[in-house]
């Protein structure tokens, strides 16, 4: 079992109003799965992704990654988890505007810079893999939306994570580019056996995944598997 959530609950307060973002979610994700999470705005799908990736802590419930209880980790150990086990891809790319594509891919390992040469080689290989070999020294503003998301994908892979968590990765892209991005992630999933969880509200994205989890009001209401 790669990821397991038990009775996962998240409650937060917005101007003293209690909001139950997640309500006792139970979920199991196997290694190498390619999953999408769908649901209307406010259904809790992004919150679920934050909790699975160790970016936020649950109010109740447990998360296990490779059988280890993530909810018991310290802040530093959560940082280690985010750096070594999980790769994040964001809707709005979230690249550092002052850095080149290559440097952006290397950024997660800057503070650990023990062997930057090795990191650089890996970053170059990843950028070639996502088709940006010729654009490594361009800054984000000189890249198109699709190219920026490819840089972000390369960044999420720099430390060879076992899990990729993507929050609306195609939200800012046209449908053709969005499809290319999802197919790239699919290829990673198949070739590198990386577990991928994509949060989306776009059915054209989810139809490319193996399993679709539907959330509503913080609960899992339905699951679909495609067997093609």
């Amino acid at each position: 079992m790669m990821i397991e959530a038990k009775d996962l609950t998240k409650i937060y307060y917005l101007d003293a109003v209690q909001v139950q973002a997640l309500d006792k979610i139970n979920l199991k994700i196997e290694k190498g799965e390619f999953i999408s999470v769908m649901g209307p705005s406010g259904s809790g799908k992004s919150t679920l992704l934050h909790l699975l990736g160790g970016i936020d802590r649950p109010t109740f419930g447990k998360i296990f990654i490779n059988s280890a209880d993530v909810t018991k980790l310290s802040d530093t150990e959560l940082s280690d988890l985010r750096r070594d086990t999980v790769g994040f891809i964001f809707q709005i790319f979230n690249l550092i505007p002052t850095l080149t594509a290559l440097e952006n891919v290397m950024v997660p390992l800057f503070p650990r810079g023990a062997d930057l040469k090795w990191v650089e080689e890996r970053a170059k290989a990843l950028l070639s893999m996502v088709g940006l070999k010729e654009r490594m020294n361009h800054k984000p503003t000189q890249l198109s939306g699709g190219e920026r998301q490819r840089v972000a994908i390369a960044r999420s892979l720099v430390n060879q994570p076992q899990i990729i968590l993507a929050d609306e990765p195609t939200g800012e892209l046209d449908s053709k580019t969005g499809r290319e991005i999802i197919l790239l992630m699919k290829k990673l999933n198949e070739e590198e056996n990386v577990t991928v969880v994509i949060v989306t509200h776009d059915p054209r994205v989810s139809e490319l995944t193996e399993r679709i989890i539907y959330l509503q009001d913080g609960r899992i209401v339905r699951e679909e598997r495609s067997y093609d």
């Binding site: 990736g53 970016i55 802040d75 530093t76 940082s79 280690d80 985010r82 750096r83 070594d84 994040f88 964001f90 979230n94 550092i96 950024v107 997660p108 800057f110 503070p111 960044r155 999420s156 430390n159």
Partner: peptide, 19 residues
């Protein structure tokens, strides 16, 4: 703010950001 959030999301420690 957002960039610093990204750095932390990709595994930077709080102490790395401080530095």
């Amino acid at each position: 703010t957002r960039e610093i959030g990204v750095l932390k999301a990709v595994g930077w420690y709080s102490s790395d950001v401080l530095k």
